[in-house]
Design a protein around this nucleic acid. Sequence first.
DNA 1: AAGCGCTCGTGACGGCAATCACAACTGAAA
DNA 2: TTTCAGTTGTGATTGCCGTCACGAGCGCTT
Lengths: 238, 238
Amino acid sequence: MRAPYGLNILDNCLTCPVREEHIFCNLSVHAGQRLNEIKSTAVYPKGAMLFIEGQQPRGVFVLCTGKTKLSTSSREGKTIITKISEGGDVLGLNAVISSHPYEVTAEMMEPGQANFIPRESLLQFLKDHGEVALRVAEQLSRNYYTAYEEIRTLGLTTSPSEKFAKLLLSWSSKNTQNDGSLQVKMTLTHEEIAEIIGTTRETVSRLFSDFKKRQLLQLKGSTLLIRNRPALEKIIQS
Amino acid sequence: MRAPYGLNILDNCLTCPVREEHIFCNLSVHAGQRLNEIKSTAVYPKGAMLFIEGQQPRGVFVLCTGKTKLSTSSREGKTIITKISEGGDVLGLNAVISSHPYEVTAEMMEPGQANFIPRESLLQFLKDHGEVALRVAEQLSRNYYTAYEEIRTLGLTTSPSEKFAKLLLSWSSKNTQNDGSLQVKMTLTHEEIAEIIGTTRETVSRLFSDFKKRQLLQLKGSTLLIRNRPALEKIIQS
DNA sequence: AAGCGCTCGTGACGGCAATCACAACTGAAA
DNA sequence: TTTCAGTTGTGATTGCCGTCACGAGCGCTT
């Protein structure tokens, strides 16, 4: 007998995008059952904040559907987006494990569903199931690598055009297509792109114009077409 | 009967700067003994590379004495220093846990001693001792926070002067002194400081001149004296 | 003392991107 | 339709900082 759709965390391996490395999949039967007892599922509207930077950690969210924007800001209001999370990602894990405040704000960019696991329950669960703790450690070190990639982008790349090219390439690498040109669905505003690469909205606008003129990309509605990948790669190491 | 000085990893709690959070301290007797069997100690000269960015992970280094410079560079030769590690720090943990290449280069800035734990032995050790795996996870999430602090510095701070002020404050917060003014021993070259805050050597030189003129700091030989902390804090949020 | 490598200070210049400003456009709501 | 909020394009201006250049200081070796 199966739990209803979306209520059994083990089912996430089926309903969420499949990820071999998903820390809460392929658990022992006993651990899986325990996990199902402590988690709860909810649907969030667009704009919902799963958690906010600086808050004491309440628990982790296992994103099932929808996209989430992770961002951090300074007191003066400047904001950078550090990651766009999608189905299968685990959010807030670092804060819960280290008992530090959430280091980012997580905001739903579109309606979506997520499983919530309260902090205390998760910590107790990890103490009881040492083998899962190692999985968590692996997940954390993956997060760490992502953060380092961000550091490299922000620290080693000087000009906005380089960062922009890098971002475009990171998008295209996710959606590998048949022929040389790749298309990606663009859901971000120029403002948001600016917050990702750490520049201003106007500069992003000009970059789009410039890259279009240079035949590097093309826009059909909200679909982004990357026409000249090698040229973009060349821009990065200029 | 005790092992000779420096050869017993448990002694690091005594010989290394005391850190409650040290992941390899306060272990069970059994785990501690096992750890002593798999670790080895060595002394490294100034300039020695413990590991290099991109290498397959061989193991972790528990730094006992000496300072280590962690850096990452782009193909074009630009380098950023992400952290200066000191006694008690565990280096290379993320790479070993995730089986990814080292994400940074670790170079000894002065002669020092470190314990080495080979990759395979450590992973097996963690499988056998689930309680230590959780400690490792905690350490990883601390590393993650440090990385995020770096992201905030690089991404939210625009001008070199802000970053410089932030760096000075991070130094002074470590060495809290009696009166308002704090002194820190400066061992870094302007070039290295530039690589930390992501600017050029010349700009760092000018920043020192400027800050001296504005009575924010003072230099006595290699000793840095911070004269006006509040003013520095004001620069950050300008 | 001379030579060398490394570090540090500072001037001059130029380019690029942040800032401000405004207009055009979109799409949804009234 | 009109209205309005949010997004996008683009021009003009300005200032900051990266780059290049050169000289001075300092410690070490020969």
